[in-house]
């Protein structure tokens, strides 16, 4: 992958994702809300990272900024040395397509496509290779039986698992999951997080949640509050902490 021209070679942090002095402000009329304030974080190229914090702490905003879905108001976000804050929209789109996978809070699927087709939406090119990969991912995630079903025939948990398969299809370097268990029951929530956790060998998985129990298996947990990154924690340190997301 090419590196943005504005990046000095000495600044490159190969295969890493980092945020430096990142701020994100939302404007609603005259009202300004700072979702992120001077966030500095460096993430590894593989592993399972949790982001925890109460509602409004900026954890989802951090996810969007790191994934190029939102541009920071201040600071830089670097992926493989490329500054996403200054990249063009088309470049960010291409980056999301080639390197990132997404699982959102709601299990968004295209209602007129089968589960199989929804998974294939994650492929840049629908060719034989993508189909083979989709078949394997669906089989690995235990959702092969849903292949020909329409989303309306699936439960919330089943839909979210299809979303995970779509996110994994392209073997992304980073999977961003924003509260992927929020709309699921306990059992399905664990199923989805376990699926994501298994991907840590292939790439980096970042899961945003306010439920500490879902991050029991995480390598590290970034704790957020009032738009600031308070620091790193471990599952044992955050176990039983209720953050009221």
């Amino acid at each position: 992958m090419s590196v943005g021209s504005e990046t000095d070679a000495s600044e490159r942090i190969t295969d890493d994702l980092s945020a430096a002095g990142v701020g994100l402000a939302y404007h609603d009329g005259d009202t300004r809300t700072d979702a992120l304030i001077d966030v500095n974080v460096t993430l590894p190229s593989t592993g399972f990272i949790g982001v925890m914090g109460p509602s409004g702490s900026g954890k989802s905003s951090l996810l969007y900024v790191l994934s190029g879905l939102k541009r920071p108001t201040t600071g830089d976000v670097r992926y493989r040395g490329e500054n996403l804050a200054r990249a063009s929209s088309s470049r960010l789109t291409a980056l999301r397509r080639a390197h990132f996978g997404f699982v959102f809070q709601q299990p968004w699927l295209l209602g007129w496509q089968t589960a199989w087709e929804n998974v294939l939406d994650g492929a840049p090119d629908v060719d034989e290779r993508a189909c083979e990969r989709a078949a394997r991912v669906m089989k690995d995630l235990g959702i092969a039986a849903f292949a020909r079903k329409m989303p309306s025939q699936l439960s919330g948990g089943e839909k979210q698992r299809v979303c995970v398969a779509r996110a994994m299809l392209n073997r992304p370097k980073v999977i961003f999951a924003d509260e992927p268990t929020a709309s699921l029951d306990h059992h399905n929530g664990h199923l989805v997080v376990d699926m994501l956790a298994r991907y840590r060998q292939e790439g980096l998985v970042i899961v945003v949640t306010h439920d500490a129990e879902m991050l029991q298996d995480a390598d590290r947990i970034l704790v957020m509050r009032d738009g600031r990154a308070l620091g790193w924690s471990t599952p044992s340190q955050t176990a039983g902490v209720a953050l009221g997301g």
Binding site: E117, N118, V126, C131, K139, A144
Partner: peptide, 24 residues
């Protein structure tokens, strides 16, 4: 279960159909 997926895969490749095909 595997049959479902394989048939879907074979069907998609054979038809060369894109999941976002306007006709679909």
């Amino acid at each position: 279960t595997e049959g479902h997926v394989e048939r879907s895969a074979q069907g998609a490749v054979a038809r060369n159909s894109h999941p976002l095909s306007p006709l679909t």
